[in-house]
């Protein structure tokens, strides 16, 4: 039953969203003039330089010693010292560097998985069930979407300190799981891609609500779940204030906090810091490039609906 159910609506939505970019030739009358094309190329080149230059520079800078950073041409390689900078990075972080990266993967992955499941479940509930209090719950969660999260971090510290969870992995994972934006997306997707008739048919067949959710709804919402997972994963990876407040042991730090500590408390080799920056963002960039079309789809849902 489920294999045929799993293919329809949401995937097509994403395909449609991406469709305009995959070369359908414009009619002749819509094709732009040559001068406009040249101006566009110039503008886009400048734009690309702006966005990509810092990344290029990090790759260059992480190959240099402090002396070369000052003396050599800053736009190209000099005496390549990747190995030395890597060694310095490891020794300055007292061997913790890869531990920090692994911590980031653990926190972001765990928050992503748990957060996605509870968001989709809540979104499904708000979209497909009628009950008293639903409107209020929706309103409160959507208000949470506009809540400045950094401001919550301070009282959150008080709460977690009270239940003695500060400086544990839970102090990062639990707050990072809760994503009003994830519920917002889950609700929109459930509204558009879970047919009520299908749920009713399954109920008539005697399926329990949990079974319907696990076997039908989760499959229909699989694309939405990838989007939500990515949002929570990246938000957790990028969070700095939360670990700064919650975590004090070096072996529990995520990579953002670790690099900040390395940069602020010692006067390190700058090339080594840049190498840490480069290696520390690599995992998230890989994940991000591999799954980038889902971001598009998720943002599209948000932009079009609001």
């Amino acid at each position: 039953m489920t294999t045929t159910l799993a293919t329809p609506a949401p995937r097509r939505t994403i395909a449609q969203l991406l469709a305009p970019t995959t070369g359908d030739e414009p009619p002749r009358s819509l094709a732009p003039r040559r001068r406009a094309r040249i101006i566009t190329v110039v503008v886009l080149t400048v734009t690309l330089l702006y966005f990509l230059f810092p990344i290029f520079w990090v790759i260059i800078a992480s190959s240099k010693s402090n002396a070369d950073l000052i003396a050599s041409n800053s736009l190209w390689f000099a005496d390549i010292q990747y190995a030395q900078n890597y060694e310095k990075l490891i020794s300055w972080t007292q061997g913790h560097f890869w531990r920090w990266v692994a911590n980031s993967v653990l926190y972001s992955g765990a928050a992503g998985v748990i957060g996605t499941l509870i968001s989709v479940s809540a979104g499904y509930s708000l979209a497909k069930f009628r009950y008293r209090g639903r409107g209020l719950a929706t309103g409160v969660i959507m208000a949470g979407l506009l809540m400045p999260v950094a401001l919550l971090t301070i009282p959150l510290y008080v709460v977690f300190n009270g239940i003695e969870l500060t400086n544990t992995i839970w102090a990062i994972i639990i707050p990072s799981c809760v994503s009003p934006f994830g519920v917002f997306l889950g609700r929109i997707y459930a509204q558009t891609s879970v047919p009520t008739e299908l749920m009713e048919a399954a109920r008539l067949d005697g399926a329990s609500e949990l079974r319907i959710f696990a076997t039908i709804v989760l499959r229909l919402l699989a694309p939405a779940m990838v989007t939500i997972f990515l949002f929570i994963f990246v938000a957790t990876w990028n969070n700095f204030l939360l670990p700064l407040m919650m975590i004090s042991s070096p072996e529990l730090k995520p990579v953002t906090l670790g690099l900040y500590g390395m940069m602020s408390y010692f006067a390190p080799q700058k090339g080594a810091v840049m190498m840490g920056a480069l290696l520390g963002v690599l995992p998230v960039i890989v994940l991000f490039l591999g799954l980038q079309r889902y971001w598009q789809a998720g943002l599209a849902a948000g932009a079009v609906k609001s």
């Binding site: 810092p54 990344i55 990028n238 920056a277 520390g280 963002v281």
Partner: peptide, 10 residues
């Protein structure tokens, strides 16, 4: 995709 803190360091 680059954490704000890391971008700020760069």
């Amino acid at each position: 995709a680059i954490p704000g803190v890391v971008a700020a360091m760069v």
